[in-house]
Computed example of a mutant assay.
Amino acid sequence: MPFGEQPAYLRVASDLRKKISDGSLPPHARLPSQARIREEYGVSDTVALEARKVLMAEGLVEGRSGSGTYVREVPSARRVARTGHWTMEECTPFRQEQSDERVRGTWESRSEREEASHETAERLFIEPGDTVMRTRYVFSVEGEPVMLSTSWEPLALTGRTPVMLPEEGPLGGRGVVERMAAIDLVVDNVTEEVASRAGRAEEMAELGGVPGHAVLVVARTYFAGKRAVETADVVVPADRFKLAYHLPVR
């Protein structure tokens, strides 16, 4: 194949993708059959099949059992705002994950003790097997699940204190900054690492997506000085959301 020339299946996928983009193949329209693609583009069955697989892997089309393959309705990416300002003002779990004041949401959660995995221990600067409080959140906007979060807090810091359970007690439902201040830990810095990976089946079931489609994962850790007080993984579907950062310049 000459340098720079695309394989036939990618050329076919590119043309079909363009038709989806410009509305020639609108949402819910049936994708041309494998035989139709073969005839229209003058390619083999194998090429036609691989082109369809590309579009399916990109999340542009979906198969319906016994019916065929259809163009998916992909919503415009919604904004998940992150910020460099971490205060106690209206610092709820939803607000600490979505700092856009225009967005109002709700959450459900569940907390339980567990032994820290090697990864969690490394992020919290504790020993593997140390006891942590794990809390799983499902965040929703207008009744639609939009974001997942799993947080871990070392019980060596919060155990037997009023803030041991993030969603119970006098400061239940408040953010990490305010809760830690109640036990004399001043949160003054936070780190975030953003990566992408395939969405796991259980995650996509909660978020209403397709297993294997890409998600963005924000690995966030709160610090009081050099002491890690909480670490969390925030998961959002990459095809429905974008992360927006507003960071102060000193």
Rank of each mutant, 00 (worst) to 15 (best):
3 F>S: 12
4 G>E: 15
4 G>D: 11
7 P>R: 09
8 A>Q: 12
8 A>Y: 12
8 A>G: 14
9 Y>F: 09
11 R>I: 11
13 A>S: 08
14 S>K: 14
17 R>I: 01
20 I>H: 04
22 D>R: 10
22 D>F: 00
33 S>H: 09
35 A>Y: 10
35 A>I: 05
38 R>I: 07
39 E>M: 10
41 Y>R: 00
41 Y>S: 08
41 Y>G: 03
42 G>T: 01
43 V>G: 06
44 S>P: 03
46 T>S: 12
48 A>H: 03
49 L>F: 13
51 A>C: 08
51 A>D: 13
55 L>H: 11
56 M>G: 14
56 M>V: 12
58 E>R: 06
58 E>D: 08
61 V>Y: 09
61 V>P: 13
62 E>N: 15
62 E>T: 11
62 E>H: 14
70 Y>L: 04
71 V>S: 05
73 E>W: 01
74 V>S: 13
75 P>F: 04
77 A>F: 14
78 R>W: 14
80 V>D: 11
83 T>I: 12
85 H>T: 14
87 T>R: 13
93 P>Y: 02
93 P>L: 02
94 F>D: 13
99 S>D: 05
101 E>Y: 10
101 E>R: 12
102 R>F: 12
104 R>C: 15
105 G>M: 00
110 R>V: 11
110 R>Y: 12
110 R>C: 08
112 E>Q: 06
113 R>T: 07
114 E>A: 10
115 E>Q: 15
117 S>M: 01
117 S>G: 03
118 H>C: 12
128 P>M: 02
130 D>H: 05
132 V>G: 05
136 R>D: 10
141 V>F: 01
142 E>D: 12
153 E>L: 09
153 E>M: 09
153 E>Q: 10
154 P>A: 09
156 A>Y: 09
156 A>T: 06
157 L>W: 06
159 G>E: 03
160 R>K: 15
165 L>M: 14
166 P>W: 02
170 P>N: 01
171 L>S: 00
172 G>I: 11
173 G>D: 01
174 R>G: 08
175 G>K: 06
175 G>Y: 05
178 E>Q: 10
181 A>W: 10
184 D>C: 07
184 D>R: 01
185 L>R: 08
188 D>P: 03
189 N>P: 01
189 N>L: 07
200 R>D: 00
203 E>Q: 05
207 L>W: 02
207 L>Y: 03
207 L>F: 08
207 L>I: 02
212 G>N: 05
215 V>E: 02
215 V>T: 08
216 L>H: 13
219 A>Y: 10
221 T>L: 01
222 Y>L: 05
222 Y>D: 05
224 A>H: 06
227 R>K: 08
231 T>W: 02
232 A>T: 14
235 V>R: 01
236 V>Y: 03
236 V>E: 08
239 D>H: 13
241 F>E: 00
244 A>K: 10
246 H>V: 15
246 H>Q: 15
247 L>F: 13
